[in-house]
Amino acid sequence: MGAILELQGVTKRFGGLTAVRDVSLAVAPREIVGLIGPNGAGKTTLFNLITGVYRPDDGRIRFNGERTDGLSAYQIARRGIRRTYQVVRPFPEMTVLENLMVGAIFGTPGQGRLLPVEAAAQARRTLEFLGLGGRAETLSKHLNLGEKKRLELGRALTADPALLLLDEALAGLTPSEIDHAVDLISRIRRELGKTLIIVEHVMRTIMKISDRIVVLHHGEKIADGPPDVIARDPQVVEAYLGEAML
């Protein structure tokens, strides 16, 4: 069926709490999927399941047709999935360039998995793409939040992954930084041909950039469809309890 990522009945429990319940989802190549839901809906847990940080208690995950649930995080990463973090986690004591080089050196087959010398060149190209060229030699702990988020995006991009998972890539950014990030995300799909799943709370933005919106609530998928349909879905509106959906 040509899906790059396919989840079938994925469930994850933490003790008595079911964080993700019976979620099925298929993502097509070059699609941008917005993943939304109230706090605690299971969005980040779903990312952790896809990237192998957690293993699902039930269900299957396939990436490019291959079962990946049960593989370790690094094995899944090498097959071409990269992520960013809700609370940014750049490598603090490494320079911006070194952060991106790690991405390239441990990248996916093809363009990735470069020798350190080639990785530096690849990292510099990505820094230009992100508009971070002037910060190459800065220790990443000295960047501001917007720059750290771009750094994480760059560190993921240098690995040349087929699928990018962005966990609140826009939260905490200023309006102009949001515009810049939105532009970057659409270019990542258009120019680099990536598939993206984006968790986001900035509703107006996520509705604008996504081809499709998936809504999680209490760990279950309650809606899946085009942004304009989702915005009017009574179940979704109820889940957000009066939050303006626009």
């Binding site: 973090y85 441990f106 996916t108």
Partner: peptide
């Protein structure tokens, strides 16, 4: 200066992130 060193530096900075970046920690 080789792959091993960059992997170790990633582990030193944040081992969990290193794993999701493909480092066999």
């Amino acid at each position: 200066r080789i792959k091993l060193g960059y992997g170790l530096l990633a582990i030193l900075n944040d081992e969990d992130v290193a794993q999701t970046m493909g480092v066999n920690t």
